[in-house]
Deep mutational scan, measured.
Amino acid sequence: MMAYMNPGPHYSVNALALSGPSVDLMHQAVPYPSAPRKQRRERTTFTRSQLEELEALFAKTQYPDVYAREEVALKINLPESRVQVWFKNRRAKCRQQRQQQKQQQQPPGGQAKARPAKRKAGTSPRPSTDVCPDPLGISDSYSPPLPGPSGSPTTAVATVSIWSPASESPLPEAQRAGLVASGPSLTSAPYAMTYAPASAFCSSPSAYGSPSSYFSGLDPYLSPMVPQLGGPALSPLSGPSVGPSLAQSPTSLSGQSYGAYSPVDSLEFKDPTGTWKFTYNPMDPLDYKDQSAWKFQIL
Rank of each mutant, 00 (worst) to 15 (best):
W86Y: 12
L186P: 01
Q104P: 05
E70C: 13
S266E: 04
Q28K: 11
K118G: 01
M5P: 00
L57E: 09
A293H: 07
E80N: 06
A92D: 15
V226F: 14
A117Q: 02
K102T: 04
P232E: 01
A15N: 01
P21A: 05
Q228D: 03
S266Q: 05
E53C: 06
P285R: 14
S128E: 06
Y195I: 09
A174D: 02
S204D: 04
P31N: 10
A117C: 03
V83T: 13
D24E: 10
P272L: 09
K60V: 03
Y32M: 04
G209I: 11
R98M: 02
A117E: 04
S81T: 10
E71N: 07
H27T: 06
A92P: 15
P236L: 15
P272A: 14
V66K: 02
Y288E: 03
L286F: 07
T194D: 00
V264F: 07
R98C: 04
W294G: 02
P145K: 08
H10A: 05
V131S: 07
S262Q: 09
G122W: 07
K38G: 11
L267I: 15
A174T: 02
E268I: 12
Q100G: 10
T279N: 00
P170F: 15
P244I: 12
L54A: 13
Q103M: 05
S12Y: 15
P133R: 07
L51E: 15
C132N: 08
V180Y: 04
S213H: 10
P9G: 07
G239P: 05
G274V: 07
Q84R: 07
R115I: 01
E52V: 06
R176I: 10
L54M: 08
S150I: 07
S203D: 04
P240C: 08
S257T: 06
R119Y: 09
M2P: 01
P184A: 06
T47A: 07
Y11A: 02
S141Q: 10
Q106C: 06
P31W: 13
S124M: 07
S49T: 04
Q106P: 04
A73C: 14
E80S: 08
R41L: 11
L299I: 15
G255I: 12
G259A: 06
P147L: 06
Q100P: 09
T194W: 12
Q105F: 04
S22Q: 10
D140C: 05
S128G: 07
P7W: 14
A56K: 04
A192H: 08
Y63K: 15
A207R: 05
F215H: 00
D287G: 13
Y32V: 05
Q248K: 11
P107K: 05
S19H: 05
G209H: 10
K88F: 12
A114I: 06
S185M: 15
A59D: 05
F278H: 00
T45V: 07
K88G: 13
S249V: 07
S245H: 09
V180G: 01
F201D: 00
Q62E: 03
A114D: 04
Y63E: 13
K88E: 13
I162K: 00
M5V: 05
H10I: 14
L286K: 08
Y11L: 06
V226C: 00
Q256R: 11
E52G: 00
Y208C: 01
A293C: 13
W276P: 00
Y208G: 01
M193C: 03
M2K: 03
E268F: 14
R37G: 02
F58S: 12
G183N: 04
P145H: 06
I298C: 00
L253Y: 08
T129I: 07
G274P: 03
V83A: 11
A189G: 05
S152P: 11
P133D: 07
D24L: 14
T194L: 12
G109W: 02
A200Y: 09
R95F: 14
T155R: 08
N77S: 08
S139Y: 05
S143Q: 01
P147E: 08
A73H: 14
S141C: 04
T154V: 10
S252A: 06
V66D: 13
V242K: 09
S161C: 14
L74Q: 03
D265W: 15
P149Y: 07
V85K: 12
E173T: 11
S212G: 10
Q291A: 10
Y288H: 02
A177K: 10
E70M: 11
L51Q: 13
F215M: 02
K270Q: 11
R48C: 06
P227Q: 08
A198R: 06
R40K: 02
A68N: 07
Y142D: 10
G122C: 07
A56V: 08
K102P: 07
L146N: 04
T47Y: 07
E268V: 11
V66T: 09
Q175F: 11
R69M: 12
L136H: 07
P227Y: 13
P36M: 11
K120Y: 01
T47V: 11
P190A: 09
S81G: 05
F201G: 01
L57Q: 06
A189R: 10
A117S: 07
S182V: 12
M5G: 00
P205E: 00
R115M: 01
L246M: 04
S249I: 12
E173N: 12
L25T: 01
G178I: 14
P144T: 04
L25E: 01
P236D: 01
G231V: 11
K295E: 05
P272M: 11
L179H: 07
G183V: 05
S212F: 15
A192K: 10
G217W: 14
V66I: 04
P9L: 11
G259Y: 11
P36K: 10
S128H: 05
